[in-house]
Amino acid sequence: MKRRERTRQLIELGGLVAKAGLIDLTDDDRAVIFGILVDAAASLRSEGRDKALLLWWRRGTRAFQALAPDREPA
């Protein structure tokens, strides 16, 4: 992955952290946010991976749909 693509990816992922409300909910405590992500990664390494992915995909899809009215037309 080229540097510019990687930078864009990191910015987009940071935006998802913000959209999820994690910055405000944790008072911008990066150790807590990192801990949340480490927990999620552990779930993805477990036998419950497929179930977790499906659950999180559904929640994420609903959350994106709920935000859609706030988005500007393309």
Rank of each mutant, 00 (worst) to 15 (best):
D29S: 13
D50W: 04
D29W: 00
L13R: 15
L53C: 11
L37C: 05
A74R: 12
E47Q: 14
D29L: 00
I11K: 10
G35M: 02
K2E: 14
R8E: 11
L13E: 15
D39A: 12
T61V: 03
L55T: 09
L55I: 04
A66R: 10
M1H: 06
L55Q: 10
I11N: 00
A52K: 09
W56V: 14
T61M: 06
R4V: 10
R59W: 01
S43T: 03
R30N: 01
E12K: 01
V32P: 03
G60W: 05
R49P: 00
G14D: 07
E12D: 11
A41V: 13
F34E: 12
L10G: 02
W57L: 09
I33Y: 03
G14N: 11
L67H: 00
K19F: 14
D29R: 15
G15W: 04
E12W: 08
A74Y: 08
E47W: 01
P73L: 14
E5D: 15
E72Q: 15
V17A: 12
I11W: 01
G14T: 13
G21I: 01
G60T: 08
T7Y: 04
S43W: 06
L55H: 07
I11Q: 10
R45A: 11
D39I: 00
T7H: 07
A66H: 01
W56K: 09
G15I: 08
D29T: 09
A20P: 02
L67N: 00
V38G: 01
R49Q: 12
V38A: 12
R49V: 02
Q65S: 12
Q65K: 11
G48Y: 06
L53Y: 07
P69Y: 07
P73H: 11
F64I: 08
L67M: 14
S43M: 09
G48D: 11
T26R: 04
I11V: 14
I11F: 00
A63L: 11
V38E: 03
Q9T: 13
G60K: 04
L16S: 04
R71M: 13
Q65A: 15
P73C: 01
R62A: 14
L55P: 03
L53H: 06
L37S: 07
T7A: 12
R62K: 13
T26L: 06
A52E: 09
G48R: 13
G48V: 07
E47N: 13
A18D: 15
A68P: 08
A40P: 05
E5M: 11
A20F: 10
G14R: 10
A52L: 10
D24V: 10
R3T: 13
D50Y: 02
E12Q: 07
R6I: 15
I11S: 02
L13G: 01
Q9V: 12
D70G: 08
L22G: 07
L67V: 04
A42P: 03
E12R: 05
S43K: 04
F34R: 15
M1P: 10
D27V: 07
A41Y: 04
S43G: 12
R45F: 02
I36G: 06
R62T: 08
K2A: 08
A31F: 06
L10H: 05
G14S: 14
D24H: 13
R59K: 06
K51S: 08
P69C: 08
W56P: 00
G48L: 05
D29C: 03
